[in-house]
């Protein structure tokens, strides 16, 4: 299994290199660091969140509320800074705490009440985006305008570049990817996550507090969503309650494309990060190099997802498909 996993990551890596070669040969601007890293802001939230949604999916769950938590973080940050007069970093911390609380509520219902993860996080996505809207009403600024005018130190979080080339967001993403990799593949906690995903009963009988492990994955994914929310707010310069609304589908796509089984028990941090970057580069390269309109980008991303899952399914059991084809003919 491990070998297959490694193979899949190699495939992703090859796709990524292929993308670079094709896009660079079509338009040499693509490889300019300024252009390349300038695109990073559009894809960084998906990259960051999908890393930790991987944890949730390895336990056999799913998290479709992460997008709404991005908005909740952003607006809590904005309102507590502008209207409650908190220091911007204290406001960020508060936003992370709120997100962690939101994640633990959903995690509690999934882990301790045994409710289906899909339903709980569906409810959560309504609930938290609703709360975000209500919080935005607390502000003196009208909600559709968004809260702006953040201090220089906060905005520079996404404007500063290491060695004048690599933006801070990339460093945050790489750091989180390393943390996710170590947590998932090098610690006891990571082994527990995998075991819970393979067989929760067996995990419970072998002395793992499986419920707590499940709960913790939802908290982690929410915290990652809040970090993405802070980065996004800093980049946009405005705090709005709905900035994460369209993220859900890209996140799940990245996790699945990264080789995580939606039934649980299998997945990797490296695979997810590679997949997220592959999707991101596709969304960036197609408009730049082939003049594909932004609005059409759902098609290639959806097609990639479909091709990957169909290919994987046929590779896993070619007999079923052949049998069905015969029966039909």
């Amino acid at each position: 299994m491990k070998k297959a996993l490694k193979r899949w990551e190699t495939v992703l890596f090859c796709i990524l290199i292929l993308e670079f070669v094709i896009f660079a040969s079509a338009n040499s601007k693509f490889l300019m660091p300024r252009v390349l890293f300038g695109s990073i802001n559009d894809i960084i939230p998906t990259c960051i969140i999908s890393l930790f949604v991987t944890f949730v999916m390895i336990t056999g769950g799913i998290d479709i509320q992460a997008g709404s938590i991005v908005g909740l973080t952003s607006i809590v940050l904005g309102v507590s800074w502008q209207d409650w007069g908190l220091n911007i970093w204290a406001a960020s911390l508060l936003a992370i705490l709120v997100a962690a609380l939101a994640g633990s509520i959903s995690g509690y219902f999934v882990a301790y009440c045994g409710v289906q993860p899909m339903v709980v996080t569906l409810g959560g996505s309504f609930l938290f985006s609703g709360i975000a809207l209500l919080v935005s009403n607390l502000s003196a600024t009208e909600s559709y305008k968004g809260i702006s005018g953040f201090p220089e130190s906060f905005v520079s979080l996404s404007k500063k570049k290491l060695f004048g080339v690599i933006p801070n967001q990339v460093i945050i993403f790489l750091a989180l990817a390393v943390i996710a990799y170590i947590l998932l593949h090098k610690t006891k906690y990571g082994r527990k996550i995998f075991l819970v995903g393979v067989n929760q009963n067996a995990a419970e009988y072998s002395g793992i507090n499986s419920r707590l492990v499940i709960l913790s994955t939802y908290v982690l994914s929410s915290i990652s969503a809040s970090i993405a929310g802070i980065v996004l707010t800093s980049y946009l310069g405005t705090a709005k309650s709905d900035i994460g609304a369209t993220l859900t589908m890209p996140i799940i796509t990245a996790v699945v494309l990264g080789g995580t089984l939606s039934t649980g028990g299998k997945g990797s941090a490296l695979g997810t990060s590679l997949a997220a970057v592959v999707i991101g580069m596709l969304r960036f390269g197609l408009p730049l190099c082939f003049k594909v309109s932004q609005q059409y980008l759902d098609i290639p991303v959806g097609l990639i997802l479909l091709i990957v899952v169909i290919g994987r399914s046929i590779a896993n059991n070619p007999k079923v498909v052949a049998k069905f084809a015969k029966g039909r003919m």
Binding site: G302, L303, V309
Partner: peptide
């Protein structure tokens, strides 16, 4: 066909179809 014949988890397959169909509306 994707879900029942190819045995692909339904959430993932229909998610992919969702992307393609949504894009086709724009086209």
């Amino acid at each position: 066909l994707g879900v029942a014949v190819l045995n692909i988890p339904s959430l993932i397959f229909t998610l992919g179809v969702n992307g393609v169909v949504r894009g086709m509306i724009y086209v």
